[in-house]
Amino acid sequence: MAKQPAKPSSAAKKTARAADDTDFSLHSLQDAFEAKKRYAASDAEMMEFYRQMLLIRRFEEKAGQLYGLGLIGGFCHLYIGQEAVAIGLQSALDNDRDSVITGYRDHGHMLAYGIDPKVIMAELTGREAGISKGKGGSMHMFSTEHKFYGGHGIVGAQVALGGGLALAHQYNEDGGICLAYFGDGAANQGQVYETFNMAALWKLPIVFVVEDNQYAMGTATKRSSAETAFYRRGTAFRIPGMEVNGMDVLEVRAAAEVAFAHVRAGNGPVLMECNTYRYRGHSMSDPAKYRTREEVQEQRDHHDPIPARPRTN
């Protein structure tokens, strides 16, 4: 029986890869990130991260409570469990230049900007004092003053719109970048890949962030996605990917520094996957029967981004 040809060693593969990577590396950003995986925050910065994440947590808990009381209506998607993603990323932005866009789970991203919680809560309760004068609601909030462009209710639409914001940065030569968030569910929308293609083709200054909270509504990623390592999904468009622990604000911040520097230097888009977990249902009306209590408790006990006592740096 003929011996099977030996598989190429990983070293050989690496050499072959390097040869193909003269002007492009799918891995260079991840390598840079791995080299310094946690951001060295000062005590003041740590305190600020903690304050902001706790604000989101408490705001969302209150929103959930008000929904139960009938004071918030319609769809209401809470950010509890995912706080480290928005804070880690947005703390690294240049707020004078950069723009942010996200989907309907948007309360946390607004609070991360320091937008007054009162105008957000007033919007959730459908009041004229709300940031959208009560006409938008939970899913449709904007603050052009902060360059926060929503708050979009159609799954995946914000990715193409974010591509447009990035095009505007490039067109105006303002040095800004766009941060476009979407979920693991939106990651299966066709327009996401249409946008990847044009963003890479035109070298648009955009960071695509997949907030992988493991479930698209009630469907686990492994039941919906042939490739659940979402950071790999830019490969076909030559977009470098990064895989980040989205439950650790310092890791997210460290990854943000690498990605933003790459994009701001005119190298085109980056695709970052932040692995995270939402403790609540998809929306307030979701009983979350598709996962066990134990699974959620395990995340809370061992991976919570807001530990009772800060983990050692």
Binding site: A160, G162, G164, L167, H169
Partner: peptide, 9 residues
């Protein structure tokens, strides 16, 4: 979508 986003921007 990109055109619409550019208009928003």
């Amino acid at each position: 979508g990109i055109g619409t986003g550019a208009a928003m921007g």
